[in-house]
């Protein structure tokens, strides 16, 4: 069964007198343990697509079946639950809580999931260990480098064992070397069974994925498998 199945979805924004069609007619399916990159220039609608895929937003038209559940007509609370349990977000600007340490940032989704303090601290530590930050547990974001911050964000995305990891330009704010390290981490997460959806506008980053979906003017332009995937050399923070 498909993990994600969207059919003929459209997203229309009312901007004053005009309607803006961010997405016109998009259909696609994504299976478990796929590694998909969504590409497109700015204004193409890829962010809107990502927001819908991530249950942050609902489509104006069309259907979205996530893991067998219809998401299109869910209310705010149910969407929050899906985001909490099924989706792990990684953002370009990391989006960590600046005044909380790494551990608290990572355990936050578990707080919202209603897990008790002991168990969630344990799991947050495990997630931080997975991304190679066992020794940075009590550091606050401003005491960490950009790459380390993104690792904390990835640990936060991983901690609930979500069905998909949604990464929006995860290397956009990082230098090339650090970006490669992060991409290596994603490749490793993929190889251990995670489903990853990557949104980017960089060809080179997209080629880490197994499949690239190109969006233009709110429509899918091309949807193809990558012939020569970039398999990054494993870095020193490898998964245990």
């Amino acid at each position: 069964m498909n993990l994600i199945s969207i059919e003929h979805i459209a997203k229309i924004y009312d901007v004053g007198s005009e309607e803006v069609h961010a997405l016109r007619d998009v259909s696609l399916t994504i299976e478990k343990n796929e590694y998909v990159a969504i590409m497109g220039p700015s204004g193409s609608g890829k962010s809107t697509l990502m927001n819908i895929l991530g249950c942050l937003d609902t489509p104006s038209k069309g259907s979205y079946i996530f893991n067998g559940i219809s998401v299109g007509d869910m209310d705010d609370n149910d969407l929050a639950k899906i985001r909490n349990k099924e989706i792990g977000f990684v953002f370009q600007t990391f989006n960590l809580l600046p005044r909380s340490d790494a551990l608290h940032n990572v355990e936050l989704p578990l707080i919202y999931a209603g897990m008790n303090s002991y168990e969630r601290k344990e799991r947050a530590r495990e997630a931080l260990a997975k991304v190679g930050l066992s020794d940075r547990v009590t550091h606050k974001p401003n005491e960490l480098s950009g790459g380390q911050r993104q690792r904390v964000a990835i640990a936060r995305a991983l901690v609930t064992s979500p069905s998909i990891i949604l990464a929006d330009e995860p290397t956009g704010n990082l230098d090339t070397k650090t970006g490669e390290d992060i991409m290596a981490l994603f490749s490793e997460l993929h190889s251990t069974g995670n489903t990853i959806i990557l949104v980017t506008h960089e060809e080179y980053i997209a080629e880490h994925a197994a499949r690239i979906i190109r969006i233009r003017d709110g429509m899918i332009e091309r949807d193809e498998y990558v012939e020569k995937r970039i398999i990054p050399s494993s870095n020193n923070h490898s998964l245990q």
Binding site: L56, N77, A80, R83, N84, L97, Y112
Partner: peptide, 12 residues
Amino acid sequence: GIRKAIGAKRRT
């Protein structure tokens, strides 16, 4: 926004 993205409900 961050809290909501990672699963905080309105009530929370």
